[in-house]
Structure formats: C-alpha cells, structure tokens
Amino acid sequence: MPKMVLTSEFVSLNGTDLSEYTRKAELSVEVEEKDVTTYASAGWKETLGGLKGGELGLEFLQDFAATRLDSIMWPLFGTVVTFEVRPTSAAVGTSNPKWTGSVLIKEWKPIEGGVGDEATAGVSFPTSGAVTRATS
C-alpha cells in the first residue's frame, strides 16, 4: 500500500511561491446536493450535483520583514488571485499532480497567537471559478 508523508508541499498565490512560510495547506472541493425526488422515484430520494465550490486553507508562519509574507499578502486582501498547490515541490507529473484555480483573499490575520506561541496566520480562502487538476 503506497504511503506518503508531506514534507515539501508547494504553495503559490498570485504567482509567488509561499512554500517557505507555509506549514499546512488544505484544498477541498465540493458540489451542492440537489434533491430531485418526485413521486416517480418510488419512495427513494434522488439527488443531482449542483454548483461546485472549494476552499484553500493555509497556515503560515508569519514574517513582517520587508518583502516577506505580510508585505506580500496585505496588498492582496480583497482581491481574487491565482493559486497552485501540489504534494511536493518537485516537477509536476503523474505522481505529483497540481491543482490550480483562483481564490478570493477574503481575510488576513497579521497577528495571531498567544504568549510564547509562534507568530502564525491561519486563513481560509474560497475558490472563485473552476479548480483544475493537471499532471503536466
């Protein structure tokens, strides 16, 4: 049984590789469930897929230095930007697919954490438009 430990995920927003700041990345996609049950369904519920959507959740280790994470993310707040994620930073291929699309930068947490914690920024961005999977 194949197994994998994520040790070098690739994360890019707006064409900028943010992997060095990222310690967790989660891309989820879903489709709305639409009930199309009729009397002809013979007592069984029937469903179809409706609108599709997704979410990109990221946890960053914060960096406030000039040209670093906070100065990259702050101007993106409120805009729709492209993203790319893949299991490793290696070249895209059949064993290292990439997922791409666009997300709305709907939130930014410049400061998050308590006394003695790492300076982190946990965020979640909704997808905007199609999410695609590619192996080349």
Rank of each mutant, 00 (worst) to 15 (best):
T16Q: 14
L18G: 05
E20I: 04
T22Y: 09
A25Y: 01
A25M: 10
E26D: 09
S28V: 15
V29G: 06
V29F: 04
V29C: 10
E30F: 12
V31H: 07
V31E: 15
E32A: 15
E32H: 10
E33K: 12
K34W: 00
D35P: 08
V36H: 02
T37K: 02
Y39T: 09
A40N: 08
G43T: 02
T47H: 11
G49D: 07
G49I: 11
G53Q: 10
E55C: 03
L56G: 02
F60E: 02
F60P: 03
L61F: 07
F64Y: 15
F64L: 10
A65I: 01
A65W: 06
A66K: 15
T67Q: 15
T67E: 15
T67Y: 14
R68F: 07
R68A: 11
S71I: 02
S71C: 01
I72C: 09
M73E: 03
W74E: 10
W74S: 12
G78E: 11
G78K: 15
F83D: 00
F83R: 05
E84P: 04
R86M: 11
T88N: 08
A90H: 11
A90M: 08
G93I: 04
T94G: 13
S95N: 11
S95A: 14
N96I: 05
N96F: 01
K98V: 14
K98G: 15
W99Q: 11
T100G: 11
G101P: 05
V103P: 01
L104S: 09
I105G: 06
I105T: 04
I105W: 03
I105S: 10
K106Y: 03
K106W: 06
W108N: 13
W108E: 03
I111E: 05
I111A: 12
E112K: 08
G113E: 01
G114R: 07
V115Y: 13
V115N: 11
G116K: 07
G116N: 14
